[in-house]
Design a binder for these strands. Structure first.
Length: 585
DNA sequence: CTGGGGAGGGGGCCC
DNA sequence: AGGGCCCCCTCCCCA
């Protein structure tokens, strides 16, 4: 007995889930567009994807091989078995691009389909493309550029994939009859590889909960009470981080799934549509799905939507809208979260994703980063870049896909203007600066600084606790005189003076001085809140927040105002309160 | 409407 | 690398 439409219906459901972002557990970044999808589906479609999603939940695709528009078609194809073509997309060029992408992604059926189509049209497959380096090598190259300060040889945890050669694909799986508008793969149940034996099972069980999260672990551990969602978070993953994953992957899939329950914003937003003013994708919005409005916990919903707000606040608004089409975020979004509070939450992923890094910053030359260096607020704020202390960003890390203007040398050293093809090389170069020039310059009283750093300098003057007890803190920063207990900390600190953010966020391009900060930041992109309150179920991105939050339940108010005796659960609120005492009002 | 408190969230930084 | 803390921003609630 066999249900005739089973496979079709299943695929239909999966595609609907995709368009809604439901149970999506992987994000694919193509240039500056984000696509959500299901690992199982991707893995079942391509052995290349299979190798990628095994370890990573955030995948950067080589923009030379695939662009957002093409990838959208690819994804549609994967989920529907159809190539829906518009007049534009049915052009030969489109098929060539599709073929390139399909070859790159090892989507053999699609590649065959494109070949067939091109052949039928009398066109030729793109001559050189299939011989370009295979996906694996390209990915390595790609991620190497993306991941700063990851050791060379990072991506080696990728399982070897079959050769990247572009073998001719059997056309047997293709339907002979191809219409110009729609092309089908013969059987929706037929997959390029046999890796999907568990697909259905996994899907029905809610995604990839059982999948090893070998990527950069952003989920951390979760308190035992985290419930079903948290159960899926594997506690072991900390040790699993691979160097590569820092650049390509981000989170564990279970957490993503989880977010669909507890963090509807991300789940929904990334999948739901936004205004469609992207030139590439404006013709349709197939996923204008009225997915269930995200459930919101008290306060959290509104809050969640305001997530990127801070960066938006007081900051310029970009000209560019970053529409989200078919689950795709296209381009940076301006700082104003248009949809904030609108309930649907459909906007904020896009907002957050791109507010973090103002496109303006990105567009401009490397120097502007020296302005933004001080505080993350500044950079994300774009216009407010100059504030934020003395941390002049003298070195700029360029993330591929965000700033192509430097050609291959995306990593530019600000003081000397030299470009480097990799962050490693830039970092190595920077070291020579710090050792050879920095201190010399300092001795000479001419530190490399931006013109406007005088004010900022004051902010980081050796104030506060940094100077006390110099006996126990023998390691002193030569720039700001802060002292530290150990040389490693000093080194880390010194980089805040001289190194600009070697750790970029793969989603928004924002850069960080410390990997941990970037990792934490990524959690916010992905809506990972591994720390759940046992009392109320509220979830947090950080343990510390949970600790703070627990005082709400316990009633503990450890922070007391010495002036009025007022007690507070959080120190910051005491501080805020003290300002009220001291401020002349 | 306003001010104050409570609280969620983000980044920087030190250990 | 991860934890913890500090600081900041912001919003919501309430008096």
């Amino acid at each position: 007995m066999e249900l005739p439409n089973h496979a079709k219906q299943l695929l239909l459901q999966l595609n609907q889930q995709r368009t809604k972002g439901f149970l999506c557990d992987v994000i694919i970044v193509v240039e500056n567009a984000l696509f959500r999808a299901h690992k199982n589906i991707l893995a079942a479609s391509s052995i290349y994807f299979k190798s990628l999603v095994l370890h990573d939940n955030l995948i950067n695709l080589d923009t030379e091989m695939v662009n957002p528009s093409v990838f959208r078609q690819v994804l549609d194809f994967i989920y529907t078995g159809k190539l829906l073509s518009t007049s534009d997309q049915s052009s030969e060029h489109n098929f060539s691009a599709l073929l390139t992408a399909a070859s790159y992604l090892q989507l053999h059926d699609l590649a065959a389909l494109c070949r067939k189509k091109l052949k039928r049209n009398g066109g030729k497959p793109l001559p050189g493309k299939p011989s370009t380096p295979g996906p694996l090598s390209r990915l390595r190259l790609n991620s190497q550029r993306l991941s700063s300060s990851t050791p060379a040889g990072n991506n080696n945890h990728y399982p070897p994939t079959p050769s990247d050669t572009d073998q001719p694909q059997p056309d047997e799986g293709l339907r002979d009859k191809l219409s110009d508008d729609e092309m089908y793969v013969g059987s929706s149940g037929k997959n390029g590889n046999g890796a999907n034996g568990s697909t259905n099972g996994n899907i029905s069980s809610g995604g990839s909960a059982g999948e090893p999260d070998l990527g950069l672990d952003l989920s951390k551990k979760s308190p035992p009470s985290a419930g079903t969602a948290t159960d899926a978070l594997s506690p072991h993953s900390n040790s699993q981080e691979s160097p590569q994953s820092a650049s390509v992957s981000t989170t564990n899939s279970a957490s993503l799934d989880d977010s669909s329950n507890t963090l509807p914003g991300v789940e929904t937003c990334i999948s739901e549509n936004m205004d469609l003013n992207s030139s590439k994708t404006s013709e349709e919005a197939p996923n204008q799905l009225d997915g269930p409005p995200p459930q919101k916990k008290p306060r959290q919903g509104a809050r969640k939507n305001e997530w990127p707000k801070r960066e938006a606040s007081g900051l310029k608004s970009e000209d560019h809208d970053r529409p989200l089409v078919n689950g795709v975020i296209v381009g940076p979004k301006d700082g104003r979260s248009t949809g904030i509070g609108g309930g649907g939450g459909g906007n904020f992923i896009s907002d957050q994703s791109f507010q973090c890094k103002d496109e303006e910053d990105i567009r401009e030359n490397g120097r502007d980063h020296s302005d933004e260096s001080g505080q993350s607020d500044g950079d994300s704020g774009g216009g407010g870049g100059t504030r934020g202390g003395n941390h002049s960003a003298n070195y700029v890390y360029r993330q591929e896909g965000f700033e192509p203007a430097f050609g291959d040398n995306l990593y530019v050293c600000i003081p000397c203007g030299k470009g480097f093809p990799s962050s490693e090389q830039l970092n190595a170069h920077v070291e020579t600066h710090t050792e050879d020039e920095l201190y010399i310059k300092e001795e000479g009283g001419t530190l490399v600084k931006e013109e406007d750093e005088e004010e900022a300098e004051d902010l980081s003057a050796p104030v506060g606790p940094s100077n006390f007890g110099s006996e126990t803190r023998p390691f002193k920063c030569t720039v700001c005189s802060k002292s530290y207990k150990d040389p490693a900390t000093l080194r880390q600190h010194e980089k805040s003076h001289w190194l600009t953010r070697p750790f970029p966020c793969n989603i928004c391009g924002k850069m960080f001085t410390q990997r941990g900060t970037m990792t934490r930041h990524m959690r916010s992109h992905l809506g990972l809140k591994p720390f759940a309150c046992e009392e109320c179920g509220m979830r947090f991105t950080r343990q510390y927040r949970l600790t703070e939050h627990m005082r709400v339940h316990s009633g503990e108010k450890p922070y007391e105002c010495q002036l009025c005796g007022g007690k507070f659960t959080q120190q910051r609120n005491l501080i805020s309160h003290l300002r009220m005492h001291t401020s002349p009002s």
